[in-house]
Amino acid sequence: MSERLRDGGGRGAGEGGFRELDPVIHAQARLRVVVALNALPEGDQIAFPGLRDLLNMTAGNLSVHLSKLEDAGYVSIVKTHKGRTPVTYVALTSRGRAAFDDYTAAIRELLGTAETGRNA
């Protein structure tokens, strides 16, 4: 899987003209994570507990998916301190945003509903 990702995620068009769906994003839980992060303005980072709360996931489950997204270069995870408490901030990277745009475009293409919705 990581080989494919280094080649640019789900960006390549398949042999038959169909775009392949990026396997990193095309899984329910990770898709939800990416959508949530994509809804933040670019340049914003969300604290881990906030994201967990937003997605209603367990911390363990969310961590697993975040590290998969981080491995693919889609998500940046910054660990820092607020006073003495450690805080983790998460954000979608520009590569992650691009991958999500590609993914939604591919989905719409597959469904033949290209450009019916706004992608903000």
Binding site: L21, Q28, A39, N61, H65, L111
Partner: peptide, 30 residues
């Protein structure tokens, strides 16, 4: 709630994926 698939690796139908995107986006914005 779309939480029955604990490891999140379940196969998604594109239509289902699109619905999930829209639903999740709305939820987050609200």
């Amino acid at each position: 709630m779309a939480g029955d698939d604990e490891n999140g690796e379940g196969v998604l139908h594109p239509r289902e994926a699109l619905r999930l995107i829209e639903e999740q986006r709305g939820q987050v914005r609200r």
